[in-house]
Simulated assay, not measured.
Amino acid sequence: MAELRAITAYAVACAEPALAIFERERPDDRRPRAALDAARSFADGARRTKVIRDHAWAAQRAYQEARDAGLAAASDAARAAVAAASAAYLHPLAKATQVLHILGAAAHAARAVELDAGDDPNVGADHIERARDLASPVVVSVLTRYPDAPSGRGRAGELLRILDASLRQSTTDR
């Protein structure tokens, strides 16, 4: 449970900077913030309950609505909140898709800030660097129990794989 809390705290810290993008575009929609708040509560010691899942599903609907409204940066910001809440449900199954629970919030937040900056890849790369620096030894240790990040998933998937490779490389640099 301590590792799940550490993973979730990391995911929340990575997703949080993108929340402002969503809230600027959809100021009356609190669903992504509620998902982050629920995840943060769990990371801070609260029980892992259905409330986290419910808020994740609500943030997923916010992502879809923002996407359908043509708000690409806001939709990725909401996806970052979904991923942060989902981090509390990382499974011990050694599948590459589980890496999304660990690093998905960082990747979608990076894509959101990148899109918000006119699709500037340097902005996304900077966010990935910060996410790498935020990763505690616990996060990296858990990550290395899983296969490399899966292929696909567009630019957010590319950012995810960059972060994944960087964190795994940090274990061999020591």
Rank of each mutant, 00 (worst) to 15 (best):
R33P: 05
A39I: 01
R26M: 12
A59E: 02
D28P: 08
I52M: 02
A66F: 09
R33Q: 12
A58E: 07
T49W: 09
R61G: 11
I21V: 15
R24C: 07
A39S: 05
R24I: 04
R26E: 08
Q64W: 15
F42G: 03
G70T: 05
S41A: 15
A58Y: 00
A38I: 02
D68Y: 08
E23C: 08
A38Y: 00
E23L: 12
A20L: 12
R31N: 04
A58W: 03
W57A: 11
A46L: 01
A34I: 09
F42I: 03
D44S: 13
A59C: 09
I52N: 01
R30D: 12
R53Y: 00
Y63W: 15
A34C: 10
R61S: 14
G45E: 06
R31P: 02
A18E: 00
A59R: 03
H55L: 04
A56Y: 03
P27D: 11
A18F: 02
P32A: 12
E65M: 13
G45F: 00
A59L: 04
A46F: 00
A20F: 10
R67T: 08
G45L: 04
D29M: 11
A59G: 04
R26H: 10
D29P: 09
K50H: 00
E65Q: 14
D29L: 11
A18V: 03
E25T: 05
D54Q: 13
A43S: 12
A43I: 06
A69K: 06
I52S: 02
R26D: 02
R26T: 09
R40D: 10
A56I: 04
R61P: 03
R53N: 04
R61K: 13
R31S: 03
A39H: 01
P32W: 04
S41Y: 11
R53T: 01
A35M: 08
V51H: 07
R40P: 04
T49S: 13
R48A: 01
